[in-house]
């Protein structure tokens, strides 16, 4: 955090100290972002209906598949039903469909203004994403989850500790999602094909997170691959924690890995940002 970025190459040391003192500002930015999303109420209700509907289809499919079977890949039919409910609830929290806000700001040149603000650009966008994630957790994820549980009778976690672990894994997942998307979106700075790239990266993210099919059902080789990648932190990990399928040392190892990934992505993201600023200050945008 020693580095302060100013696209216009101005001396930024004064701002830097102001910035650290009033890191409250990022909470304000997050709150603003939260409020912005609040405006789309009808769209959100429609979204809850959509998520519930897709959940219902998944549940029908799993129920039919499991007919006459016990455990498959460590899940039984009720686990699978619960998986479907939570996956639908987490979709928007984790931005599983991607989010092009940053890349669009880059393409439109908006980031020159953003960069010249006395703010840390990375934290600025992190705050925006945090506000968005909290909004979707409360107003999309929670209702979808409650409705799904009531209609389809999923499992509830064994104890309060599980709830706690579940929430921490959601937080980790959200951060993983943001740090990864920051890098992917930043590529818009160097290529005009950002949309295509985001499309591709997002596909990978969705699939290897376990949003489409639980990784538990993957064939062995694909499962090995999925477990080596960090994306499962967005769906597979939180849901398995919730179901009590991931506990003790195994869970500690997985969460440890996720934190390492997170650090790596923050570093890469900041490095990419540095390059971007360098380019802007040298070429003047």
């Amino acid at each position: 955090m020693a580095q302060r970025y100013d696209a216009l190459g101005r001396d930024f040391t004064i701002h830097a100290s102001v910035c650290t003192i009033s890191s409250v500002i990022y909470l304000h930015i997050a709150a603003k972002s939260f409020q912005k999303n609040l405006a789309y109420r009808a769209a959100n209700v429609a979204g809850i209906l959509t998520n519930t509907f897709f959940g219902a289809i998944y549940i029908s499919i799993y129920t039919a598949l499991f007919r006459g079977r016990g455990d498959v890949g460590g899940l039984d039919v009720r686990d699978a039903v619960t998986y479907a409910i939570i996956a639908q609830s987490l979709l928007m929290v984790m931005s599983a469909f991607g989010n092009r806000e940053l890349s669009e700001a880059i393409v439109k040149g908006q980031i020159v203004t953003d960069l010249s603000r006395p703010l840390d650009f990375y934290l600025y966008w992190a705050a925006i994403d945090l506000g968005r994630a909290v909004y979707f957790l409360l107003f999309r994820g929670a209702p979808t989850f409650v409705i799904g549980m009531l209609i389809f009778r999923g499992r509830l976690p064994a104890d309060a500790g599980t709830w706690l672990l579940f929430f921490s894994s959601i937080v980790t997942g959200t951060l993983l999602s943001f740090t990864f998307r920051f890098i992917a979106n930043s590529l818009a700075f160097w290529t005009t094909d950002a949309r295509g790239i985001l499309y591709l990266t997002n596909t990978l993210l969705m699939f290897f997170a376990g949003f489409i099919v639980p990784i538990n059902f993957f064939p062995a080789w694909l499962r090995t691959l999925a477990e080596a990648l960090p994306f499962r932190g967005l769906a597979q990990v939180p849901i398995n924690v919730y179901l009590g399928k991931m506990t003790g040392p195994a869970l500690a190892r997985v969460l440890g890995e996720q934190v390492l990934w997170l650090i790596a992505w923050v570093l890469i993201g900041r490095w990419v940002l540095g390059r971007m600023v360098q380019r802007l200050t040298v070429n003047g945008g």
Partner: peptide, 23 residues
């Protein structure tokens, strides 16, 4: 260029449904 990337992306995204059936 964007078109090609999106075409491939679309193939993959929608292909996920097929992958799901297969898996």
């Amino acid at each position: 260029a964007s078109f090609v990337a999106e075409l491939v992306g679309n193939l993959l995204v929608t292909g996920l449904d097929f992958v799901m059936v297969a898996v």
